[in-house]
Structure formats: structure tokens, C-alpha cells
Design a protein around this nucleic acid. Structure first.
Length: 630
DNA sequence: TACGGAAGCT
DNA sequence: AGCTTCCGTA
């Protein structure tokens, strides 16, 4: 096995430039943390530990000092640093590992998104510059440099996945340069970096991080794995308890790896797709074939994967929509079947895929030529909100509504009430949650069926949920037929919360939509997608729904948050006290929904579509066409 | 030790 | 936006 992590991971420079800080050259704390984590020399100060993505600050004062040096804030201390970290809770970049001192955990989902912020599929020419060793020559992928300057140096920097190896370091330097502390982290880091480079160059660094060379794909995968935190399957992942990167990468290079039992379902779900799409040949191969190509299909998969990630991780679907420069080539329309086929190829993956794919993915993704803007940071709800979430309304779901949620819900719900043990909402940590999905197998079957036949991609969004967190077993499946939908038990509200929040109304399509989120809500799940081709519709619906939500979200987003907060404030006491109970009640009441997870399910009234955009329409139209084909 | 509001800075 | 600083609370 390789240690994924050894040094840490490599994020392409652009990874460090979240949309959130466009243009900002200042290093962000989380970037900095990753940087430290990546350097062995800092392992005594901060290191990966525990679950994937989980790290412990061994020497808070030192970390604070380093951070202060980097930011030229001599007054920095752990108290302040930790405040900044807490600030990330809301952004969902991090969450605290409860019960473990100075231990936090990254939400790689977001990071993942960040990783592939700009994909220009439109032009066939793009190549993933940032991508590590890219197997295939011409890919459509292109990772535009955040800044022009970066572009210049791009080749190398971008190329190396090693995070700081290239740009990051530079950035660091630049940012730090002003401060001439001697202690500045920057210099230290730089040195380290230099060492790395000398040693092997970017590639090397990269390798160090991941098992083989993990391309972005790998990263995705990893993330997925990480995400699963549930620890469900944790089996394979971590090689070294400590130095490790958050990515539990499966040792298996090829598709097999994906499928590998060890991988958690979650992995398969989220990550898998990614893998498929990833550039790296070895990894990607499973689904796509031996080599990854940036052809439309691949891209589609890729998008799907992203989508999945979004859903899985509770990222707001909006993210996709907003995705800045994603241009999906519209080559030939990918047939759903194909997508399915891909999924099928990788069994394990498949399972996961179904869910994930649909959501945005595949068809949608491909179909839409229009560029989406991606927002990395969905409006985070406060914990309380989430917890209270149940209260529901507040947040409302973002959800993903779209398909993702729908399916998810379906699958989750449909899947029969999986028994899930969920911790009180309050606790989001994945670790804590244990979920058992009784219906896993069934779900899986269903999924297969769906994919294969009905396929819809939709089917399994649920996995996302589960994957994302809770699926312990790893089996991820979506149950199409399953009866009572269960909400997903989500433990990790952080990640999931958004997901759960779905608009209550199923706007667009009511129908078939079992797949749609609607299901989640209350209706027992209707058979998700009926084999008859329903799926086509669902996609549209989903798409629309998503769109609607997206629209709504944007409009309401801030407001919602505010409301949430209010709610929280108002109801907090009550909610807190009752969280668990209420959650359960909800579950019981609705029955369909999972218990706790359900909270999220409780959806607020459906938002009305506020507006439509030409792009959307176009996309929809395209989807329709595709569907028609179905 | 941790959380999160509030205000302020860049 | 992304912290930084301060502070009250648990």
C-alpha cells in the first residue's frame, strides 16, 4: 500500500484558491494547515491523525506562532487561531473532532470542489495542467490558473499536485515575504519544499502524498474515502496512523481499488466517479476504461463525480451551478446507458455511482453546455441550526435538491429503513455515527437494476448520503424500490446537512420523481424510478428542481441563513433540549425518513422557482432531448 | 478547552 | 471574504 499521505497531499495551486478568495494571494489558514501537515518537519507540531482528514495540533502554540509568522501577526495565539478554525466550521471546511483535544478534521468535500474549480471541457484542448502526472495526453481538462501570474509558471506548478510544491510555496513566500520574522513559516516551509523538490521534483512530492501518483482522481477518491468517515470501512485506508494524509487511498491503483472491499461505500460513491473521471490512467480505468480521456463522457462522469461530492458532502448543489467555468462539451450526447455502463463496470463503484451520478452528473453535466459557476462554500448553517435543523425550516435544504436529494432520499428512504444509529444531531462527527444499513444489499440490487436498466442515474443519490457519512458497510446502494424511505442518518450533519435539507416541495416534477427529492420528504417512497424509463424524466425534473432551488437559494441564501440563525436563537433552547428527541420523532412521524438524518429531510415548503435562466432552459432542453432518446 | 457573537481590519 | 481580536459562556 502506499501511504497516501506521507507527506500530505498535494493540491495544485489552484486548490488553494478557493473561489472564496479569488484573487487573494494571502494564504488561507486551511491552506496553511495543509501545508504544515504536509511537511514532515512539522509533524511534531501538527499531524494527520485518526480519521481521514483528521489532524491533531500537537503544539497549538507553535502552530499559532507559525501562522502568525505567516500572516505577520505576531500576536497570534492559539485562541485566535482556533477562532479562525471555528470560523471554518461554518464554512464546512473543517469540523472539530469531538472529544479529542486540538483535533480537527477537514471536510475534503469542499476541498475537492476546490480542486477542480475550473474545468473547461468545452475546448477539447485543455489539459489539466495542474493535474499531476496526467496519463493521457490531450485532455479537455484544463485547470486555469487562478491568476495570470500563476499561469505563467503554470506548467510546472500546476502540474505538480504537490500542493505547495509549486505555487503554493511561492504564494506562501510572497505572502510572507513581508514579514521577516525569522521564524516565519514560510521560510521554513520553503526550505522544506525546496528539499522536496530537489529530492524529486513535484512528482516526487506528489507521489509521496498519494499512493501512486494520484491524480486528482485519486484525490477525489480519497476524499470520498475520507468522507466516509464513518469509519465504516476504514479498513484499508490508513496506512500509517500518523503521517497520513487524509486520504485513505486504496492501495489499489486500478479500478479494482475502487471496488476494493476495503473501500468504504462512501468511497465508491463519491470518489468512484471521480476516479473514473480522473486523469490518472490507473485509477480512472475502472469505469472509463483503461485510460482516462477527457472526452465528453469522461467529463460527464467527472462532473457527476463532482456532483456526487457535492451531494454527498452536503455541499449545496448550487455549487455546481455556480461552477465557474465548467463548460461541458456537448459532443455527442452521452447516453444514460453509457453512464450506467460505466458504473457497471465497476461494481462497487456502480453502487455508489448511481446515486452520485445522477445528481448532477452525468447527463445533466454533460448536457449542459452552459458554464456553471461553482460556489465552494455553501451557506453553512450553524451547527445549532443544523441540529435544530430539524426545525427545519430554517435551512431548508439546499439541497441538492435536485436529483441528488431526491434520489438520495429515495434510496435512503426507499432503501428500507436502514437501521441507523445516529447520534444526536448535535454531533456531527462522522466518526461518531454508526450507521447500519440493513437494506444495503437490497439497495444495491436495486441500484444495479436501476442503473442497468432504469438506470437512472438518479437512483442512487442516496448513496451519497450514506456514503458520505454513514454508510458503514460500504455497501452503498440505492434502493430503488425500497419502501420506506429513510432518511439518511446522517451523522455528520456538517457534511450532510445540506443534503438533507431539501426543499419540501417537489417542484417540478412531481411524478416519477421518486427519485426526486420529494421522496425524501415524506412520501413513502415511491418506487424511485420505475423501470420504465422514468429516469429520463427524473433527470429533467431533477435538473429543474435543482435549478429552482438554486435560484431560490441564491435569493434566499443569505436570508435563510439569517433566518436560521434567528430560529436557532429562538428555538435553540428548545431545540437543543429536544434535538434528539425531536429528531426521532420526526423520523417516527415521517417514518420514512431516517431518524436523525431525517431532520434534514424535513423540508420546508418548496420554494417557488423564482426565475429561470436561459442557460438553464437550454440545459433543460438538452436534457430533455437526451431523455427523449431514452 | 471549546464555542460563537460582535466588532474591526485588510 | 477571511480572518483577527476580544470576550462571555459552557
Amino acid at each position: 500500500m502506499k501511504t497516501p499521505v506521507e507527506t500530505g497531499f498535494a493540491f495544485p495551486e489552484w486548490a488553494y484558491k478557493p473561489e472564496s478568495s479569488p484573487g487573494s494571494r494571502q494564504i488561507q489558514l486551511w491552506h496553511f494547515i495543509l501545508e504544515l501537515l504536509r511537511k514532515e518537519e512539522y509533524h511534531d507540531v501538527i499531524a494527520w491523525q485518526g480519521d481521514y482528514g483528521e489532524f491533531v495540533i500537537k503544539d497549538p502554540d507553535e502552530v499559532a506562532r507559525l501562522w502568525g509568522a505567516r500572516k505577520c501577526k505576531p500576536q497570534m495565539n492559539y485562541d485566535k487561531l482556533s477562532r479562525a478554525l471555528r470560523y471554518y466550521y461554518n464554512k464546512r471546511i473543517l469540523h472539530k473532532t469531538k472529544g479529542k483535544r486540538f483535533t480537527y478534521k477537514f471536510n475534503f468535500n469542499k476541498l475537492v470542489l476546490v480542486n477542480y474549480p475550473f474545468i473547461d471541457m468545452g475546448s477539447g484542448r485543455g489539459v489539466p495542467q495542474s493535474a499531476p502526472p496526467v496519463p493521457t495526453g490531450g485532455t479537455h481538462f484544463r485547470f486555469p490558473p487562478s491568476t495570470p501570474s500563476e499561469v505563467l509558471s503554470s506548467s510546472e506548478e500546476l502540474r505538480s499536485p504537490g500542493v505547495f510544491s509549486g505555487v503554493a510555496r511561492r504564494m506562501a513566500r510572497g505572502s510572507v515575504s513581508d514579514c521577516s520574522d525569522g521564524t516565519s513559516t514560510t521560510s521554513e516551509l520553503e526550505e522544506a519544499a525546496g528539499a522536496d523538490e530537489r529530492a524529486g521534483g513535484p512528482d516526487r512530492a506528489f507521489r509521496g502524498l498519494l499512493p501512486h501518483r494520484l491524480p486528482h482522481d485519486s484525490l477525489f477518491r480519497v476524499f470520498g474515502g475520507n468522507q466516509n468517515p464513518a469509519g465504516l470501512h476504514r479498513p484499508a485506508p490508513r496506512v500509517h496512523p500518523e503521517s497520513l494524509s487524509p486520504f485513505p487511498v486504496s492501495p489499489l491503483p486500478g479500478p479494482g481499488s475502487l471496488l476494493a472491499p476495503t473501500l468504504s461505500p462512501a468511497l465508491s460513491m463519491t470518489p468512484t466517479p471521480h476516479l473514473a473521471y480522473t486523469p490518472s490512467p490507473s485509477l480512472s480505468s475502472p469505469m472509463m476504461g483503461s485510460h482516462f480521456s477527457f472526452n465528453p463522457e469522461d467529463m460527464k462522469h467527472y462532473l457527476q463525480a463532482h456532483t456526487q461530492s457535492v451531494y454527498n458532502y452536503h455541499l449545496s448543489p448550487r455549487a455546481f451551478l455556480h461552477y465557474p467555468n465548467i463548460i461541458v462539451p456537448q459532443p455527442h450526447r452521452p447516453t444514460p446507458e453509457k453512464a450506467a455502463a460505466h458504473h457497471l463496470h465497476a461494481p462497487a463503484l456502480q453502487l455508489s455511482h448511481p446515486l452520485g451520478q445522477h445528481p448532477v452528473g452525468t447527463e445533466e453535466g454533460q448536457q449542459h453546455p452552459s458554464p456553471f459557476k461553482f460556489k465552494l462554500q455553501p451557506p453553512p448553517l450553524g451547527r445549532k441550526h443544523r441540529e435544530a435543523g430539524s426545525s427545519l425550516a430554517s435551512s431548508s435544504f439546499h439541497t441538492s435538491s435536485l436529483a441528488g436529494s431526491g434520489q438520495m432520499s429515495n434510496s435512503a428512504m426507499a432503501g428500507g429503513p436502514p437501521k441507523i444509529k445516529v447520534e444526536p444531531m448535535s454531533d456531527m462527527s462522522e466518526e461518531d455515527v454508526e450507521v447500519t444499513d440493513l437494506s444495503e444489499e437490497e439497495e444495491l440490487h436495486h441500484n444495479e437494476e436501476e442503473e442497468g436498466g432504469m438506470g437512472t442515474p438518479t437512483a442512487c443519490r442516496r448513496h451519497l448520503y450514506s456514503n458520505s457519512n454513514h454508510h458503514i458497510n460500504g455497501s452503498v446502494s440505492c434502493s430503488s424500490a425500497a419502501p420506506p424511505p429513510q432518511n439518511h442518518p446522517d451523522d455528520d450533519l456538517d457534511d450532510d446537512e445540506e443534503v438533507f435539507k431539501t426543499p419540501a416541495t417537489p417542484p417540478l416534477g412531481s411524478s416519477p420523481a421518486c427519485t426526486l427529492i420529494t421522496t425524501m420528504k415524506s412520501e413513502p417512497c415511491q418506487p424511485p424510478i420505475s423501470p420504465g424509463g422514468t429516469r429520463c424524466i427524473p433527470l429533467k425534473l431533477r435538473f429543474k428542481r435543482r435549478w429552482s432551488e438554486d435560484q431560490r437559494m441564491e435569493a434566499d441564501g443569505e436570508r435563510d441563513e439569517a433566518e436560521d440563525k434567528k430560529v436557532k436563537a429562538e428555538g435553540e433552547d428548545e431545540v437543543d433540549g429536544k434535538k434528539e428527541e425531536s429528531a426521532r420523532r420526526e423520523g417516527d412521524d415521517e417514518n420514512r425518513g431516517g431518524r436523525d438524518g431525517i431532520l434534514g429531510l424535513m423540508l420546508p415548503p418548496a420554494p417557488t422557482q423564482r426565475r429561470s435562466s436561459s442557460e438553464l432552459q437550454r440545459a433543460t432542453a438538452q436534457l430533455s432531448l437526451e431523455n427523449a432518446s431514452c
